[in-house]
Design a protein around this nucleic acid. Structure first.
Length: 593
RNA sequence: GCGCCCAUAGCUCAGCUGGAUAGAGCGUUGGCCUCCGGAGCCAAAGGUCACAGGUUCGAAUCCUGUUGGGCGCGCCA
């Protein structure tokens, strides 16, 4: 109650100590009978947007005024009168309808520079998550082709989010769910096999709805190189009697024929070559994109390890599974879904939904408190049934958090690029990376909040990559490193920064920079709690701006030693925060560019 | 038809969960290095926050409706 202590983390003086001071004032007003003893008071401070409003402002008097029947400004005065004395506070004033503006002593803020340099790459980290176990699943694209730029956005977002949550004290595991079972895999196997047959010299009518991409040829060539004619069958035999039906049925017929002609072993081999080639490709692609998953979770292993059976049993045990038209259904409508869903098809094969239920049940059984899924926005209709399944199995559906990432609409030459995996018309993540660079691409993606539609202008990203904001931020970091190199070359002493007199940092640009530096922990926490990595990107831009402005206005090395130490300490802290922030979004902080 | 997302400067986007005079980048116009990196800095112009109501001390933000755009509504994944 009204406990006022000096915090071990000076950067928190700014906000947290203010909150404690004002909470103490509230307690006193309760004792004096101005406020009801059971009055709930949320003391919240915001950083003032304008200098005239001081450093921090609270609207507590405004929000309290109604319930306690006092005029806002009068109540604000009572709060101020009840405030304990504190050396950090220079002035407190009432403004507008009843805001309380707080002005802090300049050097109480500049102490943050020392705190940052002490904390190093730990500055901005917190224990907010209290070790809560979180699994974040993202990308999870079918291994039926290379990743495209849409997956890139999910990858940049999911990975940055994982870094943010880890930095705020959550125990984070990242997973890529590999859909290596089911019909899509069969289509992949058939696609590879047909291209292989073409390489053998067979005449084949390659179906429009099989995978068209060039990478299928490459995989087929591998099979052909390693096995020669071993899987060859006459084109007539392969394609016999499959005309005239529905296209999807034709494909199913081809799948059946492939299984029959190749035998189980041969079929599994062809499929395996395709699967391995594509997962290796995806994994390498993501590594180059600075995304490394803790675990690649195989859908097929879920089936082989009987997790699927267990999940279906758990679901059945809850009394929400029934049979209709020869299939097994989950009564998801009982939990708010708009229609019931098939879990086992008429032909006995489990649906994708069924194995996904098993996967999510498995995550919960592995002890994760929170399951975060990053999905493409086109899957939003899938969310109610997934939550329904968890609820049916007696888990709190709110433990599953689904974050939807909108597609990035690509523009090239002013025209929208249409994309389809089947037709092979898509821009791959690899192409984007090679043309724009990982750092620029990641920054570009993560600048937009996930649920916002995004226009990705390829021409702009490629041809004007120097205009990309990521260079602005990286340049600030490189520039600071360069100052230190200059100091070393010219034998200018920049030692003993720990002993710098930070109260010398009184210029407007310095105060602004210090202020931005002190905001970092709040930004990180806020970004993590709201699952919004873009806040970090915006913060970094603003920090880089404060630095560049300062750099332009003042000299760091060519001033008196005391001032020089203070200024160098300040830009050293800035360098640290730039590096910490870039790390959170998976972008490099180069020493030179 | 039903459901979800979205609409802010010419363009691309922020807006701290309801606060004070709505902000950046790009583009446009005009300035700034004998000096630590000009991939930088400063300044100007640019807005009916899609539209109409409502909630309250106070709305870009919350509620309802309208318009316009994206996506979804499979025994596909």
């Amino acid at each position: 109650m009204g406990r006022i202590t000096t915090r071990p983390r000076p950067e928190l003086i700014l906000k947290q100590q203010l909150q404690e001071l004002f909470a103490a004032a509230v307690e006193r007003l309760k004792r004096d009978g101005v406020l009801a003893p059971d009055q709930q008071v949320a003391v919240r401070f915001e950083r003032a947007r304008q200098k005239q409003h001081g450093d921090f402002a609270t609207n507590m008097a405004l929000s309290l005024a109604k319930t306690c029947g006092q005029a806002p400004r009068k109540l604000a005065q009572l709060i101020i009168d009840a405030l304990p004395a504190a050396p950090e506070i220079v002035k407190v004033e009432i403004a507008g309808p009843g805001f309380i503006n707080v002005f802090l002593a300049a050097d109480s803020q500049s102490q943050v520079v020392g705190a940052i340099r002490d904390a190093g790459n730990g500055y901005g980290r917190s224990t907010l998550g209290a070790g809560q176990k979180v699994v974040i699943e993202f990308v999870s694209a079918n291994p039926t082709g290379p990743l495209h730029v849409g997956h890139g956005r999910g990858a940049a977002f999911g990975d940055s989010l994982a870094r943010l949550l880890a930095a705020t004290g959550f125990a984070v595991v990242t997973e890529y769910y590999v859909n290596d079972a089911g019909r899509q895999m069969d289509i992949l196997a058939v696609s590879v096999w047909l291209r292989y047959l073409e390489l053998c010299g067979e005449q084949i009518a390659f179906p429009d709805n099989a995978y068209q991409g060039d990478y299928i040829f490459d995989i087929a060539a591998t099979v052909h190189r390693e096995h020669g004619d071993r899987y060859r069958h006459p084109g007539d035999t392969v394609c016999a009697d499959i005309d005239g039906q529905d296209l999807e049925l034709q494909l199913d017929s081809l799948i059946q024929r492939a299984k029959m002609l190749l035998g189980q072993e041969g079929y599994r081999h062809v499929l395996g070559v395709g699967l391995n080639a594509l997962t290796a490709d995806i994994r390498g692609d993501l590594e180059q994109f600075n995304v490394n998953f803790d675990r690649w979770y195989s859908e097929r292993s879920l089936i082989d390890d009987h997790h699927l059976d267990n999940a279906l049993q758990a679901l059945a045990k809850s009394g929400n599974v029934f049979e209709r038209d020869g299939a097994l259904w989950f009564r998801s409508t009982a939990f708010g879904d708009e229609k019931d869903r098939v879990v086992v098809r008429e032909n006995g094969a489990p649906t994708y939904f069924a194995s996904d239920i098993a996967y999510h049940l498995n995550k919960l059984e592995r002890g994760f408190d929170r399951l975060i899924d990053v999905w493409g926005a086109d899957h939003h209709g899938y969310m109610p049934r997934m939550k329904a399944a968890l609820q049916a199995m007696h888990y709190d559906p709110d433990r599953l958090v689904v974050l939807l990432v909108q597609f990035a609409a690509l523009y090239r030459g002013g025209e929208k690029v249409s994309m389809s995996t089947r037709t092979g018309e898509f821009v791959t993540l690899r192409e984007l990376r090679q043309e724009v660079g990982t750092d620029a691409a990641r920054f570009f993606y993560v600048q937009r909040k996930a649920e916002q539609h995004m226009d990705f202008d390829l021409d702009l990203a490629k041809s004007q990559s120097n205009e990309n904001p990521v260079y602005y931020v990286q340049y600030a970091h490189a520039r600071i490193c360069s100052v230190f190199r200059q100091a070393a070359e010219k034998h200018i002493d920049t030692g003993d920064l720990d002993g710098a007199d930070l109260s010398l940092l009184g210029e407007d640009h310095e105060i602004a920079l210090v202020n931005t530096l002190s905001r970092f922990p709040e930004v990180v926490e806020n970004a993590a709690v709201n699952y919004e990595p873009h806040q970090v990107a915006y913060y970094l831009r603003s920090l880089a701006n404060d630095f560049h402005t300062y750099y332009n206005a003042h000299n760091f090395l060519g001033v008196a030693p005391n001032l020089r130490r203070a200024r160098v300490a300040l830009i050293d802290a800035t360098r640290q925060v730039l590096a910490n922030g870039l790390e959170l979004i998976g972008v490099h902080a180069p020493d030179k560019m």
